[in-house]
Design a protein around this nucleic acid. Sequence first.
DNA 1: CGGCCTGTTTCCAA
DNA 2: CTTGGAAACAGGCC
Length: 261
Amino acid sequence: MPELPEVEIFRQYFTETSLNQSILEVEINHPKVVRGHEEILKKLAGDQFTGAKRWGKTMFIETGHNHILFMHFGMTGNLNYYHSTVESPKYARVIFSFESGFKLAYVSKRMFGRLGVTKSIADYAKEKSLGKDALEITESEFTDALAGKNKNIKAALLDQQVTAGVGNWIADEILYQSGIYPTTRTRDLNRQQLITTYKKMQEVVKSAIAIDAVREELPAHYITRYGRKTSISCPGCSNTIERTEVGGRGTYACGKCQQIY
DNA sequence: CGGCCTGTTTCCAA
DNA sequence: CTTGGAAACAGGCC
C-alpha cells in the first residue's frame, strides 16, 4: 500500500480519529517493528497526539512533549482505529489505547515498516537523506536533482534522496503519462521532458490522493488502475501493457506509447 | 512448490 | 563517488 498518497490518507485518518485524547497505554506486540528503545515509546502513555505531518512515505506525529513519533509503513502497513470492545486487527504490532476506550493499531503484515521516536522531522529526514517531498519540491529543484544522473529514469524517481514519496506504481504511472520508457537514462532527457515528468508526477500523486488512494478509482487513462494481477491493454493504443523488470522492480509500460530517448 | 509483491538497507562489484 | 545487482527482512497469495 503505502506510497505517498496512501500515507497521506493515513495521516488524514489519524488526524480525524486520534488527536487530543490521553494515551493510556502503548502495547508493543512485536518489538521488531520498533526502532530504538521500546521504553521511549512506552513513555508516550499519559501524553496526547497533537498533530500529524508527512514527508514522503513517512508520517510524523506530534505530541505534547518535545518528541515526535515517526511511522513508516514498509510494503504492507496501515493504521486501524477501533473500539476496545472489538477484536484487534490481525498483524497489529503496536497498539495505542486511549482514555476514550478507542485504540489505534499500527498494523504491519510483513513487518517491513518501522516506527519510533525522533527529536525532530528535520533530524529524521537528515538521517535518512530524504529529498524534498514529491508535492513540495519545485520544478527547478526537481530538474536540478535529476540533471546529469546516469541511472534510468525509473530508478531516479524511486530514489528517495532525489524526491521523497514516489513508489513503484506511481513511478510507472508517471512515466506512462509522460510517454517516457522507464529504462531511459535520465541524462538523455532534455529539460522539457523533465518538466513534463515533474508535471505528471504532481498530477498522478494529487489524483491518487483525491480518490483516497483507492486504485480502482483512478482515471481510465491510467495503467496502474487495476493493480498488477490482470493483463491490461494500453488506454492509448490498445496494445498489451508489457511487464518487465527495471532496477529490480516489476515494471509496467507500453512499448509503443512510451519512447526511449 | 515456485514466483511474486505498493519498501528499504546493506554489502559487493564494476 | 556513482550505479546496479542480489540478498535479506516476513507473510501471504496465486
